[in-house]
Amino acid sequence: MTFFKEFRVNKAPAAAYYIPEFITTEEETHLLHEIYAAPKPKWKELARRRLQNWGGLPHPKGMVAEPIPSWLEQQIEKIDALNVFGEKRPNHILVNEYLPGQGIMPHVDGPMFYPTITTISLGSQSVLEFYTPLNSDEETERTRRIGSLLLEARSLLILQEDLYTFYLHGISEVTQDTLSQDIFNIEQCTPKLDNVIKRGTRISLTIRHVPRVLKAHLMFGRGRK
């Protein structure tokens, strides 16, 4: 299935696809319930947000695969049906919680993952900013910024090609978003230009494929003859 290509964001560099209402409100409520019902040790506290890893902990040397619960497998199956990972199947989900005013520094996801990002947003909208790489100390985030994408609750975002390998992406630490002409997908969204939207708590499900997976017995030296 490649119907997702109908949702190409034409104003963005190659390549972004944005599908509003990818999941239902019932699915959103169920996912949020399960995320917050997870055992406390599942959460990892960072300086500006907290997160959960499902499927294993990605590492340059390889990921030791862990079981993924059925409530997340349902979303993996939906993503897998889009064929955005080619013949690969998603095997890792990163859950990020962003409170109003929280964000993430500009970054690239790098070679540990298949070069595709799929992200489902829950609870609240956010704006994902894009930047060119830093070439000199005189450059700032403002001068490097090329535009952004509005991520509405229940939407799916797919990033591939240059938007995965070349441009950096990040979320500004603000409590509200002002919708302007430089939002690449504004015409595909419900809110329109010049609207100011307050952020609530947003949960993102970043669903990816980790190519290098280790067997647990190899990682820990078990099962040797």
Rank of each mutant, 00 (worst) to 15 (best):
T29S: 15
I79P: 06
P60N: 05
M105S: 09
I158Y: 03
I183E: 00
E21T: 02
V174P: 09
R154W: 13
D109K: 02
P106S: 05
I35R: 04
V84T: 08
I146M: 09
T118G: 08
L157D: 01
F130P: 00
Y98T: 01
L51S: 11
E152S: 12
I19R: 06
M105H: 06
A16N: 05
P58R: 05
P69W: 07
E28I: 12
E6R: 15
R208E: 02
P67S: 02
M1V: 15
N91V: 09
I207R: 01
S172A: 15
W43A: 10
R154S: 06
I158A: 07
F220I: 08
E45H: 10
T116W: 09
Y131F: 11
A38R: 11
H59Q: 09
A216R: 06
Q125C: 10
I23R: 06
P41C: 08
P58M: 05
G103A: 01
I117Q: 00
I93V: 12
P41T: 03
S180Y: 05
D109P: 02
T29A: 12
V196D: 04
F7M: 09
I183W: 02
E173T: 13
E6L: 12
R49A: 04
P191Q: 11
L168C: 05
I19F: 12
A15T: 12
G103P: 04
L150R: 13
L151N: 04
M105R: 07
V84N: 05
A216N: 14
H169P: 13
W54G: 00
T29V: 12
G123A: 08
A47W: 09
S155Q: 04
Q75Y: 07
G110L: 02
I23E: 00
H107V: 02
T190Y: 09
L72T: 08
N195F: 14
A14I: 09
Y167D: 09
V213A: 05
P67I: 01
E21V: 03
H92T: 08
L51D: 05
T29G: 13
E45R: 14
P39F: 06
G103Q: 00
F130E: 12
R8I: 03
I117H: 06
S121E: 00
L128N: 02
I186R: 14
P13M: 03
L156Y: 07
